[in-house]
Every structure is written in C-alpha cells, then in structure tokens.
Design a protein around this nucleic acid. Structure first.
Lengths: 223, 223
DNA sequence: CGACTCATTGACGTAGCTCAAGGTATGTGG
DNA sequence: CCACATACCTTGAGCTACGTCAATGAGTCG
C-alpha cells in the first residue's frame, strides 16, 4: 500500500540500457541550471543518470510552490502530448550537478509506441504523481499546519523503506514552499517539535530524534 | 493551450466500439449508487455510456473534497497497477442514472497492452488529471477565497468551448466541497458577485449574467 | 401542511499571515 | 585568519481572512 512521495528515483532504472540504444543527447547540468525554464512550453524529457532536480511553480503573486524532486534513475517530466497553460509557470532546476539523457517529445513518443513495458511504466509513474497531488489537494488541505508539517517530515524520511532517513537536508524555506505555509509558521512548528525533543534543527537540516513521537502528530491517512 | 477541467467527458469516445468487442460487463447504476465504495481497493474501471459520476474523498475529520466529475464517453478511474493507501478514502457515486461498461483491472490491462492508441489516450488522460490537480495545489492554494470561487465558476462554464454554459447546476455545498472553502464563505462570495449583477443565485443553480466581469476577478493563470 | 434541503446573514473566535528586529552559522576577500 | 557579507533561523506583536455557531428565510416534495 503506497504512501505519497515527494522524491522520485529509480522508477525507470530498468530502462537505462534501453534508453542508451535509442536516439538521445547526453547532457550535463550544473547545480542551479534550468532543465525547463519558466515560460517555455514542455519540450524535452530527461532520464536522470546522476544528480537531482527540483520542480516548482511560480505563482503570479510571487509565491513559490515546490512540487517534487527527481533523482537518479527516473524520468521527468512525464511524457504526454497536450499543451497545458499551467506548464508555462513550471520550472525545473538542478539541485546538484546532473548527468542526463535528453529526449525530444518526438523521440520519446517513438519509444512509448514501440516499447509496451515502457508505456506501462509511464502510466505507473503518472499514477504515483497523481497520488502525491491527491494527497495534498484532498487531504493535507484540511490538516492544521502542525499536522501538515509532521506529515511531510514523516514522508520525507522515506517511511516505506526499512531504513528511514532521519536527516532531512532542506532549508526551512524549502519546507515552507513544499507545504504552502509561511516560513515563520514552519519555524514555529519546528520549535514546538524541538521543545519536545522530537527533532533537532540546524542549518539546512532537520534531524528526527524520535520518529514514533513524530508519528503521533501525523494524520491517519499518512501512516 | 489547455486549462484545468473538473468535468471529464468524451475523451475515450473513439474507443466505444472497440470496448464493446472486448470482454466486459454491462452495468446500470441508479443515481446515488456507489461505483467505488470507501474502504474498497481500486478494482474495476468503467467506461461511461450515459450519466455522470462524482469522485470525492472523505477526510478523517469529516470534510468532504470533491475531486472531479466524469460523464459520457470517458473512463474512470484511470488504469494503473499499484495500490495506494489514499484510494481507501476515495468514493465514486452516480450523480444521475448511469449506463456503463465495467472492466476488471486485468481486462483493462489486456487492452492497454494490445492497443497502443488506447495506451496513448490513457497517458493523455492522466496528464489532464495531473493538470487539474497541479492547478489546485500550486495555484489556487495561493488565491483568496473570492478569486478561487471566480476561477472555479469560470472554469465550470467550459471556457474552452465557443458556447460557454452560463448555468451551473450545483448546490453551494458542492461548490464548497470543490473549493475547500466553508459553505458560508462561498455564500458570502456569491452574494458579493450577485450585488454586482455578475451572477444570479437560485436553488441548486448559479447563473452567470456577466462573464466578462467575472473574468476580471479571475487570476491570470486561469484565463 | 409539515418536513426536508438549500441559501442567507450576523456575531464572534482563531489559525496562520505579515512586519519587524535580532541571532547564528557559513563563506569570501583582503 | 580576521572581518564582513550573506544566508538561514528564531521570536514577538498585531492583523485579518476565513472558520464556526446560531438564527432565519425560502424553495420543494410527499
């Protein structure tokens, strides 16, 4: 039973060697560079060999919403044919140096049409993406800011694995942009958790000290 | 350039005759019946011949979030293989009497794997669904309640077509559940628009009298 | 006619926002 | 290696948009 994910990785790893046999371009992006710029329609699709990217949207009033992270062994953005207005506000940047395989929409279409395993995988990827968005739209929206924060921290530990990652390397600004809660309010929530010795906060990092206690604050839907 | 949609219809119409040739079950649902019940894992997929369904989610604290409507000539839910926890809180009910073709996941998988046009269409459907969810998560979230309301009304007129539908047949409760805003606040927003003679309100219906004036209240992303 | 369901308006409370000021790591250039 | 700039974090104070509660009105249906 899958829970929402903010970080996508390794869900296309099995196609790496196949991708290499198909027409593509090898590219390198330095940390901070754009893979997909604001205002540009969606045109190229990347298979990520190493490094990670962040996908976010800029609101006309200046707010920034981080939607997802994409790391090694995954493909972003999801392949499709339509053009959506909202894509003009989407931005993808490298959060670390990246090596990728770059495909045009047309090249990817070729593969989609001739490789049934690939097309099945793309649909699964979409369903995972939908799941993450549904979680936010239909669940998180109704939670208090503290619950939302705790849910996010819990999910970022990669709860599904046997080895939860207890160090979340992210600024409070990023958490705020992921949650759609003001940075100051995020700080207040974290302070509260810190007082209860559930977490430790430091520069660009949250350390989870007491995962069971954290889950006490999470909504049922999250666990 | 596509804008978000809340109402899905006719995007699988071209497969109707194909679907009829494939293994399926014809079913009839009376208004109010469940196509997919709460707690039940996702198992069956419906092609809608006539009538319409509503897909919503129930939050553990009692809130109800309407996600989308699905009418004639479309398929719901989207085909996929994984099981997501959140699906246990999803509910689909008939909002009018419905005639559908019902497929099991397995039957649909067969079609997905053997009909490339169908699989391409499924991916396009997913991208449209993602677009609607992104719109809400990354855009509406940052708008004031009045802007959100106006955006929704505008989108519900079916703005893309040449013949906008100026009568929105929906209770204020439904609008509130679509927007994630309290019913009372929805009423207040509507009152404001009514005072400016942009809309007329009546039982289970909003009539748009002045569409251009309405768009003045919409966010840029919506138009 | 009575019993729903749906819509409206007022009064009031509060979660979360913004503004403001200050504190503490980290990195850079002289 | 120091000092200075910058990025990041913390806390307080006050405001406001939106939520809840409560009372009433207005269609609709059996």
């Amino acid at each position: 039973m899958l829970t929402p994910r903010y970080f996508f990785a390794n869900d296309f790893k099995q196609f790496y060697s196949y991708f290499l046999t198909q027409p593509h371009k090898k590219r390198f992006f330095r940390k901070g560079e754009f893979l997909w710029e604001s205002g540009e329609p969606f045109q190229r699709i990347h298979y990520i060999i190493s490094g990670a990217a962040q996908n976010y949207m800029e609101h006309e009033n200046g707010h920034r919403k981080i939607i997802s992270f994409h790391g090694e062994g995954t493909v972003f953005p999801g392949y499709h044919q339509h053009d959506y207005k909202i894509e003009q506000s989407l931005i993808t940047t490298a959060v670390s140096d990246m090596n990728v395989l770059e495909f045009t929409k047309e090249q990817f279409r070729q593969m989609f049409e001739t490789n049934p395993q690939l097309s099945a995988n793309i649909v699964d990827w979409y369903s995972t993406y939908v799941n993450r968005l549904l979680y936010e739209t239909a669940h998180q929206e109704y939670n208090s800011s503290l619950t939302r924060l705790c849910n996010l921290l819990y999910l970022l530990t990669g709860n599904e694995t046997d080895h939860p990652d207890l160090y979340i390397d992210m600024t409070q600004d990023d958490l705020s942009d992921l949650l759609g809660i003001s940075r100051i309010h995020v700080t207040r929530g974290l302070s509260q958790l810190r007082e209860q010795e559930i977490i430790l906060t430091r520069r660009k990092q949250i350390e989870i000290r007491d995962l069971p206690a954290l889950t006490e604050y999470c909504s049922l839907e999250t666990l």
